[in-house]
């Protein structure tokens, strides 16, 4: 095993394990803190793929902004009540069985991986010479212009939806 594979293996296992930690914690604050560790690991994965810009964004936006928001929301809610309740249906055994079957299937399928797709136009050399931000910006505003615009609409709908569902008002006009 090369050093690359070792690092990747560590990140893959750690990310899976951390995800499990996030969803199994009873205390929401703990869950969010585990998520923070998870995000840092994902950022390292990006770094490992030579995507420095994505790694930085991952830390700044997700770890920095979104998690803080999460914590705010949790503090606004009354955590103690939720914590005491018995959450999660008693479906653990079924979940484990299904996961085991899926894992087995994936292993069988993944053993067949011997395909080498054609390399894209964004080689490491090209990104090094142009820089991450320039490459992403260029692609975002040319080839992916339409998806970029649609994404902005999705964000708009999210805002409208949040206001519609959360705002108190008299229903009758």
């Amino acid at each position: 095993m090369t050093a690359h594979q070792l690092i990747f293996a560590y990140l893959a296992i750690a990310i899976t394990g951390l995800s499990v930690m996030v969803i199994t914690r009873r205390n929401p604050v703990h869950a969010v803190l585990w998520m923070l560790v998870l995000f840092v690991h994902i950022a390292i994965l990006y770094l490992f793929l030579n995507a420095e810009f994505l790694a930085a964004i991952q830390i700044i936006i997700y770890a920095g902004a979104i998690l803080v928001l999460f914590l705010f929301v949790i503090m606004l809610l009354d955590v103690k009540d939720v914590e005491m309740e018995r959450r999660f249906l008693g479906l653990w055994p079924a979940g484990v069985v299904i996961t085991a079957i899926l894992t087995l299937l994936s292993v069988i399928v993944l053993r067949e991986i011997d395909v080498f797709p054609p390399l894209g136009q964004f080689s490491i050399e090209r990104i090094r010479s142009e820089g991450n931000i320039m490459t992403i910006g260029r692609v975002l505003y040319t080839r992916h212009l339409l998806p970029f615009e649609i994404a902005s609409l999705i964000l708009l709908v999210a805002i409208i939806g949040a206001v519609v569902l959360a705002k108190k008002r008299k229903g009758v006009e």
């Binding site: 649609i150 999705i154 709908v157 409208i160 939806g161 519609v164 569902l165």
Partner: peptide, 8 residues
């Protein structure tokens, strides 16, 4: 875009 609007 479709799904998010229909959820709301």
């Amino acid at each position: 875009l479709m799904a998010l609007s229909t959820y709301v």
